[in-house]
Nucleic acid binder design. Structure first.
Ligand SMILES: [Mn+2]
Ligand SMILES: [Mn+2]
Ligand SMILES: [Zn+2]
Ligand SMILES: [Zn+2]
Lengths: 138, 138
DNA sequence: AAATAAATAGAAATGATTTCTATTTAAGGG
DNA sequence: CCCTTAAATAGAAATCATTTCTATTTATTT
């Protein structure tokens, strides 16, 4: 059912595979959308009688720390996470559908060349695009 | 004292020029840094005996709506605003010094060409860089 | 100076996120 | 399998940045 490569990766990092964690990953694998902790919680409560929201927050952040999920910035300033498949192997950014929440990895060759312009030493940069995906355009 | 061109611009938009608003603009004009509402409030309370935090929130958002200020994304996920001088005349992004908070407008020619790649219709995009400014590097 | 719509202070509410702690559980070794 | 142990969890409570509400004040126009 769940991606075995992903499980192996997590085990290699000494991260326990719990039913809740599997269900969270499964949700992101099934629907390639971004979800807020609250949305993930709502999904988990269908499967599990007991389910704490703080655990959802902790696990989403854990997955983000290990490159499995990426944080998505939306205008409502709440937390959103999405699956990041090309985990740091190739530079890419994320494109979010404002309609359905779909998140696509898009390879990029944007490189900050600006340290010459203003004398800034760039430590990190962030690019994100919003729009309407092909499916939602119809 | 305060930028008269800016005042004229605001009057043209039927925005009342109040002492608090002048003081907020003056702060951003004096120090080209990003500030949180709380930081602006702390500054205003030195000059004004009575000063409500909700007014600060409202005014910062008002200025942002009218392109005078721009929102800055920091990792602490709190609101930050900075002066945006090149207001939409030229495409540019913002570079933030992680040390002193300085914000620089940097012209860009980054154009999202990705609607071809994945069939996405891009509505807006956001780029921001973080680093250390020349002054703080010394 | 008076009229008026907008701006404000201050208190209170909101709600997403975090913290805390006792209990449960996954993983590894016998 | 059964034990052991460190990690994960639920649930309640706290936190705290941001927003809402309302009576009062104020900037602008007559
Ligand atoms: Mn990704
Ligand atoms: Mn700007
Ligand atoms: Zn879509
Ligand atoms: Zn600096």
């Amino acid at each position: 059912m769940i991606d075995n490569q992903l499980i192996a990766k997590l085990k290699a990092k000494h991260i326990k595979i719990t039913p809740k964690r599997e269900a969270i990953l499964q949700l992101f694998l099934n629907r390639e959308c971004c979800f807020s902790p609250d949305q993930v919680w709502g999904h988990l409560r269908k499967q599990f009688k007991h389910c704490g929201l703080p655990s959802v927050y902790r696990n989403l952040e854990l997955f983000a720390q290990h490159g499995v999920l990426t944080k998505i910035q939306k205008t409502d300033r709440r937390l959103y996470y999405a699956l990041c498949k090309d985990h740091d192997d190739h530079p890419h950014y994320h494109m979010i559908c404002v309609d359905c929440g779909r998140v696509e990895d898009v390879p990029t060759n944007i490189v900050p060349e600006v340290d010459k312009v203003k004398g800034f030493k760039i430590l990190k940069h962030f690019y994100q695009a919003e729009g309407v995906c092909q499916q939602c355009a119809n």
